[in-house]
């Protein structure tokens, strides 16, 4: 067994952490809106959110390459603001991963919010809690399992991301060469020792995280009704 490629591992954890944070921040209001809206557009938004679940990463990666084009609108805007292209950059990977892992954050949050009884929120409102106040003191604590599941799934899914990164990353060490890409290269070049080292770390970590979620969910069963 060879020493694992720690720079790829560290890069991947940074990416997964940042993506999870962003997804919780933008996912919470979006999921709350989806859980409470009465608009007829709801199925459209739900379908868009769920798209990355069914689209092959190659489709996503191909479209992202086109969107990231520095001579097109979004890629050009990014270039003029930051001086760097979205493709082949850490920022680009963050954006790609946020899109790719979006359903893994939205769906658990939405179903958690949906099970918060309307009456509870009305009671909070009648006690003159502002909607934001009611959300943070009533809905959020009741949805703690939803938050945990969303965070863990987003993190783990980003950790395991491969196809999209392969297409838009450019495999730059320390910048876009994440762990799955490193493992892929090692396997392709028959460096099985290094591949084993990284794979084993990933396997052990993923198992530990999932175990934690299941144990936590068992202990902290939140009863809504």
């Amino acid at each position: 067994m060879t020493l694992p490629d720690l720079s790829a591992l560290w890069l991947t954890f940074r990416l997964a952490f940042l993506v999870t944070l962003i997804l919780l921040i933008i996912g919470t209001p979006l999921a709350w809106w989806l859980a409470n809206t009465k608009t007829r557009l709801k199925p459209v938004v739900e379908a868009i959110v769920a798209l990355p679940l069914v689209l092959p990463p190659t489709v996503l990666g191909f479209y992202l390459l086109i969107v990231f084009n520095p001579n097109a609108a979004i890629g050009g805007f990014w270039l003029s603001v930051t001086g760097d292209t979205l493709a082949f950059s850490f920022a680009g990977l963050v954006i790609a991963s946020v899109v790719y892992s979006l359903p893994f954050a939205i769906q658990p949050l939405q179903s958690a919010f949906e099970s918060v009884a309307e009456g509870v929120m009305e009671a909070a409102a009648s006690l003159r809690a502002s909607p934001l106040d009611a959300f943070f003191t009533v809905a959020a604590p009741l949805s703690v399992r939803g938050f945990l599941t969303a965070a863990v799934l987003s993190f783990a899914h980003t950790l395991g991301e491969f196809g999209v990164v392969l297409m838009v990353g450019g495999a730059i060490p320390g910048e876009t060469r994440v762990v799955s890409i490193a493992i892929y290269e090692q396997v392709e070049t028959l460096r099985y020792g290094e591949a084993h080292a990284l794979s084993l770390i990933l396997l052990a970590f993923s198992f530990a995280v999932l175990m934690f979620v299941y144990v936590f969910n068992r202990r902290h069963r939140v009863h809504v009704h």
């Binding site: 390459l65 086109i66 990231f68 084009n69 001579n71 097109a72 292209t85 493709a87 450019g170 730059i172």
Partner: peptide, 20 residues
């Protein structure tokens, strides 16, 4: 300045889409 494609097909795509 380097970005790496998995193969020349990918390099072609990087350049064709003007990302490189």
């Amino acid at each position: 300045k380097f970005v790496f494609g998995e193969n020349v097909g990918q390099v072609f795509a990087f350049v064709r889409t003007q990302n490189a």
